[in-house]
């Protein structure tokens, strides 16, 4: 009886794990199956031509470049804030400080705020500042979204660092600031992991850029021009009644999925490198 129950539940558990794996495969397979026929070199090398949204010539280079611009800008901003903050809570504040747990707690909460709320807040902020939907607006809003992601994952990795390195540096007579600069070298793979995770989240999110970045068929050449993004390009093309355009949405979805897959696997590679590198 005992053994039977054991067996039954084991089978159920294996099934549920298999189903989850199956769903992942199913999602990726669906996107590839529907998108591959429409995926041509033009898709990633050309801007939308005239009549693109009626099924004519062109590609989504505008969205790819726009997404890259936005992610680079927002990464720069969020790194500028995340790295010092993580160093501060780990090496400046004492181990059991109330302040550091307060910061970590707010990071947890910021992490949980939905991207649509960031989008709405970002847009309200832009109205307040007199900025219209543009590359700049997109960068700022996406930076808000990915900042807590980056901080949390970088913090998690930094916490694993043993006290030996900081102590060694301090005993050489280094100031805290000099110490942190060296520690950052040691943490580099961890920082790369955090960055890749943040890129993954930032590049795929549509709700943040929906109001803030606008949309355009061109590549923006200044911060106050609107910028297209990959997820929005998928969304808009999908809304088209023309079948060719819809198919191109699926092809764009492949592009996005492949980007995410690459990011995810390289993040894994770097984090495994970090754990090998003695913690």
């Amino acid at each position: 009886m005992k053994q039977l129950e054991e067996k039954i539940f084991k089978i159920i558990m294996i099934c549920s794990a298999m189903i989850i794996l199956g769903v992942l495969v199913y999602i990726i397979a669906t996107v590839f199956y529907r998108g591959l026929p429409a995926l041509t070199l033009d898709m990633i090398t050309k801007l939308p031509g005239g009549g693109f949204y009626l099924g004519k010539e062109g590609g989504v280079l505008n969205a790819i470049v726009g997404s890259i611009y936005i992610i680079i800008g927002s990464l720069a901003i969020s790194m500028f804030i995340s790295v010092p903050l993580v160093m501060y809570i780990n090496f400046y504040l004492p181990a059991k400080s109330v302040f550091s747990s307060l910061i970590r707690f707010s990071l947890d909460i910021l992490f949980g705020i939905p991207s649509i709320v960031y989008g709405a807040f970002g847009f309200a902020l832009m109205i307040f500042l007199g900025v219209r939907a543009s590359l700049l607006g997109g960068i700022l809003t996406v930076a808000m979204l990915i900042m807590p992601i980056m901080m949390r994952s970088f913090d998690e990795i930094t916490r694993l660092l043993s006290r030996e390195l900081p102590d060694a540096l301090l005993s050489l007579g280094a100031t805290k600031y000099e110490m942190v600069k060296v520690i950052l070298r040691q943490l580099m793979p961890g920082l790369v992991t955090a960055i890749l995770l943040a890129i993954g989240r930032g590049i795929g999110d549509a709700a943040t850029v929906l109001f803030t970045a606008g949309y355009t068929d061109n590549i923006p050449n200044s911060l106050n021009q609107p910028a297209a993004t990959l997820p929005l390009s998928i969304f808009f093309q999908l809304g088209s009644p023309v079948e060719e355009v819809q198919n191109r949405a699926y092809a764009s979805a492949i592009i996005l999925t492949v980007i995410i897959l690459i990011l995810s696997f390289s993040a894994r590679y770097f984090s495994s490198k970090f754990s090998k590198n003695k913690i």
Partner: peptide
Amino acid sequence: IDTRKKMGLLAQRPCPLP
């Protein structure tokens, strides 16, 4: 900093800088 500079510390486990 001056105090620490006067004292060279050799820790239990070697910890080379990265």
